[in-house]
Amino acid sequence: MPDREKFTVAAIGDIHVKDTSDPLRDLFGEIAQAADALVLCGDLTDTGTPRQAERLAEDLRGCPIPVVGVLGNHDYEGGQVDEVKTILTQGGMHLLDGSSCEIDGVGFVGVKGFAGGFGKRMLGSFGEPETKDFVAVAVGEAMRLENAMRTVKTQRSLVVLHYAPIAETIEGEPLEIYPFLGSSRLAETIDRFTVSAVVHGHAHRGVHQGHTPGGAPVYNVAWGIEKPSGKPYALLEL
């Protein structure tokens, strides 16, 4: 299939599907009329149970466009993440977990990411073993992202995250929780490559748009963020 000259992505994060949530099939049907692919930026379930994953997978099976996504911290809460991954993958999602995929000439690459803070205030690997273990997870996620980005061969690419790579798109959140909303290590990795855009969720009270230090556009697409579309999802043309 030839590459699309115009490729529109609908991106949304933090849908938090619960056991009693209303179905999302109507929303996904609306998105399918406006976009060529749907991107889900983590916290797909509310507490990471197979039941919640099944509810989402049921709606995804009826979505007529490709669906790409990453998990979020809520998807790990139930301690059944492997089962959640299997259910969502069987539901048709291209689940990015340190991996990439290509759709009509557009590369999608992603990881969940992790916390640790931003810029000069980013947590360093110093002191107690527990602190070093925490930082090691953040470093590991950045390394997995870099390895996955090296597999992308397309001219257009979208980086999909749950945690924020920059502080700009989490402005409006309480300052006390900034270190737990993302990590500059992700942006440092992204800026080693040329990407079309970056999407993330997790910061429900942030702002929609920012840029990495290297200039890559970053979009916070968490459900509660006000977006130019006026919808819960953002529409990005790549």
Results as ranks from 00 to 15, higher is better:
residue 39 V to N: 01
residue 126 F to Q: 15
residue 202 H to M: 03
residue 130 E to I: 07
residue 130 E to L: 09
residue 29 G to T: 13
residue 49 T to N: 04
residue 38 L to F: 08
residue 39 V to W: 04
residue 164 A to C: 11
residue 81 V to S: 00
residue 70 V to T: 05
residue 110 G to Q: 01
residue 144 R to T: 10
residue 196 S to I: 02
residue 172 G to Y: 12
residue 214 G to P: 10
residue 216 A to N: 06
residue 96 L to C: 01
residue 107 G to F: 02
residue 238 L to E: 12
residue 54 E to I: 04
residue 80 Q to L: 10
residue 226 E to W: 13
residue 46 D to G: 02
residue 209 Q to E: 15
residue 75 D to N: 06
residue 198 V to P: 02
residue 213 P to S: 14
residue 186 L to P: 13
residue 33 Q to I: 05
residue 213 P to L: 13
residue 43 D to L: 00
residue 204 H to T: 15
residue 92 G to N: 10
residue 219 Y to W: 11
residue 126 F to R: 15
residue 28 F to W: 02
residue 148 A to M: 11
residue 131 T to C: 14
residue 135 V to E: 04
residue 3 D to N: 14
residue 153 K to N: 14
residue 203 A to Y: 05
residue 44 L to E: 05
residue 49 T to Q: 12
residue 29 G to L: 03
residue 157 S to T: 08
residue 65 I to K: 09
residue 73 N to P: 07
residue 36 D to F: 01
residue 208 H to A: 12
residue 29 G to E: 13
residue 176 E to Q: 13
residue 126 F to Y: 15
residue 229 S to P: 12
residue 76 Y to I: 00
residue 64 P to M: 12
residue 86 T to P: 01
residue 53 A to Q: 04
residue 62 G to I: 04
residue 177 I to W: 10
residue 70 V to E: 03
residue 93 M to K: 07
residue 40 L to G: 04
residue 143 M to R: 14
residue 111 V to L: 02
residue 110 G to L: 00
residue 4 R to H: 14
residue 215 G to C: 09
residue 179 P to E: 10
residue 132 K to A: 14
residue 228 P to G: 13
residue 233 Y to F: 15
residue 49 T to W: 09
residue 48 G to W: 05
residue 51 R to E: 14
residue 16 H to D: 11
residue 30 E to Q: 14
residue 150 R to M: 12
residue 37 A to Y: 09
residue 185 R to T: 09
residue 183 S to R: 01
residue 133 D to H: 07
residue 220 N to A: 04
residue 106 V to K: 05
residue 115 A to D: 09
residue 221 V to Y: 04
residue 160 V to L: 02
residue 130 E to P: 03
residue 184 S to F: 00
residue 14 D to H: 12
residue 56 L to H: 00
residue 109 V to L: 03
residue 191 D to P: 15
residue 165 P to W: 04
residue 114 F to L: 05
residue 23 P to M: 09
residue 166 I to W: 03
residue 80 Q to C: 10
residue 7 F to P: 05
residue 126 F to W: 14
residue 53 A to C: 06
residue 28 F to E: 01
residue 210 G to N: 01
residue 227 K to H: 08
residue 179 P to A: 14
residue 10 A to E: 11
residue 66 P to Y: 09
residue 236 L to T: 06
residue 11 A to I: 01
residue 114 F to Y: 15
residue 182 G to L: 00
residue 75 D to Q: 07
residue 101 C to I: 08
residue 73 N to H: 07
residue 30 E to C: 03
residue 64 P to I: 07
residue 189 T to M: 04
residue 174 P to K: 11
residue 211 H to W: 13
residue 133 D to W: 03
residue 235 L to K: 08
residue 15 I to P: 00
residue 102 E to I: 12
residue 12 I to T: 08
